[in-house]
Amino acid sequence: MSWIPARAALALLGVQPQTLYANVSRGRIRAKPDPSDPRRSLYHRADIDRMAVRRTGRRSAAAVAQQAMEWGDPVLASGISTVEHGRLWYRGCDAVELSDTWTLEQTAGLLWGAEDIVFGPGRRRAQARNASLLSNALSVLATRVDVDPPSRGRARQVLVPEAMRLLEDVMAAMLGPAPEPGAPAHRRMALCWKRPRAQDFLRRALVLLADHELNASTFATRVAVSTGTSLAAGLMAGLATLAGPLHGGSTLSVKELHAAAQRDGAAASVREYSARGYALPAFGHPLYPNGDSRAAALLTRFKIGKVYAAVCQEGVALTGERPNIDFALASICEAFKLPPEAPFVIFALARSVGWMAHAFEQIETGHLIRPRARYTGVALP
């Protein structure tokens, strides 16, 4: 992520400082304190470039589309969640405030516009047991793709119970049978992993990870269901996309950094990442220039391990960025000695709630998502 000082930002925009500050206050340009001089600010280069293009005239359709796909302008209308003023909002409610008391089931009720959400017990049948929990979940969903009816034109009243059964299937595939019928998701996790002290932190993390506007996996889900396919197919699309190392699999990079810091020391490991040209994982987030509020809500409530604390200190000093939700999730799992697969399982089960909310919203539009490509191949006659 590139940040530039005020002088450079003003030169690119060709405006007075007051205009720059006004755009920051309106949320059009992200800003953060300069680590080398807290009295000054740095400005997000991509936001500056986008505003500069607007000032020079009307943007072409190609420029609009390209910038929209790269942390740019919104590309779909949605009433489910958004990030504004450094906070995550679920249908107008502050997600951090909800995480103080709410469960994942209550969050699903809010995001789905439904009541009495319960995950399980669902269909009682043998679950696939494959090489990984991800393949378990995908295999179980695959059995539903040709069985469940297409989603096109179906009412939310019938889709919500179907979504609840699908989420129970995914939970069973990733966690195993429910040890306590009717237990909320966070308690089920804690019991399955035999870590009862982690219950409250699991609850908070599940609420905070339930949705995050139009991220890659959510977009994949919406594209899938926009074709009229089943909810199971949409859930598969989201889950497969989440597995990528730049998305839900990013906690693996955090754990690798932790292992290197444990072996070589935090300062040396962080410097090594920088020297090799890698971006330090789990620090900073394009939507949270002043720090990921979700991470802060978790990290302030427990004492992270010594190695993670040292990595955090060195990472902030090097990048000027604060740790994000991936760092918080990895830290929680280490602090409570959760299994290695826990970060991905927590992320996947929480975000499945958001995927279903977006699936319902997309189905109700009745529209197919079909963007055009900007051709860059061999010149045409």
Results as ranks from 00 to 15, higher is better:
residue 1 M to P: 08
residue 11 A to S: 07
residue 12 L to Y: 00
residue 15 V to Q: 10
residue 20 L to C: 04
residue 21 Y to V: 09
residue 35 P to V: 05
residue 44 H to W: 12
residue 44 H to G: 09
residue 53 V to C: 13
residue 53 V to P: 06
residue 62 A to D: 15
residue 64 V to K: 13
residue 71 W to C: 15
residue 71 W to E: 14
residue 83 V to Y: 00
residue 87 R to I: 10
residue 91 R to P: 07
residue 110 L to Q: 01
residue 122 G to N: 06
residue 130 N to P: 03
residue 136 N to C: 08
residue 145 V to T: 13
residue 145 V to D: 11
residue 147 V to H: 07
residue 153 G to L: 02
residue 156 R to P: 10
residue 160 V to T: 11
residue 170 V to S: 01
residue 180 E to T: 13
residue 181 P to W: 01
residue 192 C to D: 00
residue 195 R to G: 04
residue 200 D to G: 02
residue 201 F to A: 12
residue 204 R to D: 08
residue 209 L to V: 04
residue 211 D to T: 04
residue 212 H to R: 09
residue 217 S to N: 07
residue 227 T to Y: 05
residue 229 T to W: 04
residue 231 L to A: 13
residue 246 L to I: 00
residue 247 H to Y: 08
residue 260 A to P: 07
residue 261 A to S: 14
residue 267 A to H: 09
residue 282 A to I: 06
residue 287 L to M: 12
residue 293 S to M: 11
residue 304 I to A: 11
residue 306 K to Y: 04
residue 308 Y to A: 13
residue 314 E to D: 12
residue 333 C to I: 11
residue 335 A to M: 04
residue 337 K to F: 11
residue 338 L to M: 07
residue 339 P to H: 00
residue 341 E to D: 14
residue 342 A to E: 02
residue 343 P to K: 03
residue 347 F to H: 07
residue 354 G to K: 06
residue 361 E to P: 01
residue 369 I to V: 12
residue 373 A to M: 07
residue 374 R to Y: 09
residue 377 G to V: 01
